[in-house]
Amino acid sequence: MTWSSVVAAKGDASRECGWEPNGDVPNGEKGLFPHVINLATRARISVNATCGQRAPEVSAAPPWGWLWDGMFQERPLKKRGIALLTEFLHTSCLGNLGSSKLLVNLGSSKRFSTLKGNVSPLPLLPVSPRPLSFPVCDSRSPDPARRHPIANAIDGTNSWWQSPSLAAGRRYEWVTITLDLRQVYQVAYVIVKSAVSPRPGNWVLERSLDGRRFEPWQYYALSDADCLAAYGVQATRGRPSYATDTQVICTSYFSRLNPLEGGEVHTSLVNGRPGSAGPSEALRQFTEARYVRLRLQKIRTLHGDLQGRSSQSDASVTKRYFYSIKDISIGGRCVCHGHADNCVSDDEDGRVSAGRGHGVADL
């Protein structure tokens, strides 16, 4: 078996993770393997918390929700941010700027911002006189734009799933998403794309064959120190790498603040492992799963933003923090032991079997 023959079904995902088509196996034999498909599109997906389920929820969604506090001190404002900020001024929605200060000369062609005490001129931008609207999440709304169910994470559209914000309680840092692939597959990669929030801070990617006993595939943490403190695993520095076919690492590589929206987490379960050229029984067993679980455990916030605050002590701060996921892709293939070259789907029950080549291998 050669894992190098994997061809990703989702655009350039194969190139991103370094997989190239190659049908040769070390012993010189040619194997027939199904191409990788996106297993998430046929999965059953569930989650234990979604915004707007108990009542309509107003959130301060990025990017403008993130413009307050320390962001002014970290880098110059982008034009979009300045326009939004000026809208706040026109509608008296300044809120609490914390230690940051903003000076605006509405009567001139220049606006000035104080960044760490240094006054810098900023160009005048056109500002809409309309009041700034706050996003509302309501699972019972007839407007689909206000509903953010977990099904949005695998429907292939620009819609997204969103969790309750921390204004509803700090317990919503712990959210679990489970995908039932309906049968056992060999999983090559998992890609998670955030929507209108940064990527999750601390979380665990897990697998299971029976839906009861889950084992970790990989840990993710806000910092290398968090890897050890939260998961008892020494952090792998830089881009994820693996010493063995079954090593479970912890990485902070994908938990950086930027980008504030649309950030992606690419997890290869094959590439970079010693047995990726195959055959490797250990790697085959390590990648087999029917259930894939994301246990989100800490939201990425601005440094120090929640220190000394209770879960609902300042809704202007806590309502801006939540998870949002636009897409979950799971690249995998049938468990056919090299005896078929494509997967045959059953549209009625969502199951997939391997066909052609030396026969059909079902489970």
Results as ranks from 00 to 15, higher is better:
G81C: 05
G81M: 12
G81L: 03
G81P: 00
I82P: 00
I82Y: 05
I82G: 02
I82H: 01
I82V: 13
A83M: 12
A83F: 01
A83K: 10
A83E: 13
L84I: 04
L84Q: 15
L84R: 13
L85Q: 08
L85A: 10
L85N: 09
T86V: 05
T86E: 13
T86Y: 10
T86N: 09
T86G: 04
E87H: 10
E87C: 13
F88P: 02
F88T: 12
F88N: 06
F88D: 06
F88Y: 10
L89C: 14
H90W: 01
H90R: 13
H90G: 09
T91Y: 12
T91G: 07
T91R: 14
T91P: 00
C93M: 15
C93S: 13
C93Y: 00
C93P: 01
C93F: 00
L94G: 08
G95S: 13
G95D: 11
G95Y: 08
G95I: 12
N96T: 15
N96P: 13
N96I: 08
L97W: 15
L97D: 00
G98R: 05
G98E: 03
S99G: 02
S99L: 07
S99N: 07
S99M: 05
S99E: 09
S100P: 11
S100M: 06
S100Y: 00
S100C: 07
S100N: 11
K101Y: 05
K101L: 10
L102E: 03
L102W: 05
L102N: 06
L102D: 04
L103G: 02
L103V: 14
L103T: 15
L103W: 09
L103F: 12
V104T: 09
V104R: 04
V104Q: 05
V104H: 08
V104E: 10
N105S: 06
N105L: 09
L106G: 04
L106H: 06
S108F: 04
S108G: 14
S108Y: 07
S108A: 14
S109G: 12
S109W: 03
K110F: 05
K110Y: 06
K110L: 06
K110I: 11
K110R: 09
R111D: 07
R111G: 09
R111Q: 05
R111F: 14
F112S: 12
F112C: 06
F112H: 14
F112G: 03
S113L: 07
T114M: 11
T114V: 15
T114G: 01
T114H: 03
T114L: 14
L115D: 03
L115A: 00
L115H: 07
K116W: 01
K116S: 12
K116L: 11
K116D: 11
G117N: 03
G117W: 01
G117V: 04
N118R: 08
N118S: 00
V119S: 02
S120Q: 08
S120M: 04
S120N: 07
P121Q: 04
P121F: 02
L122N: 02
L122K: 03
L122T: 05
P123D: 10
P123Y: 02
P123C: 05
P123G: 06
P123W: 01
L124A: 09
L124W: 11
L124P: 11
L125W: 05
L125P: 02
L125Y: 14
L125A: 13
L125H: 04
L125K: 09
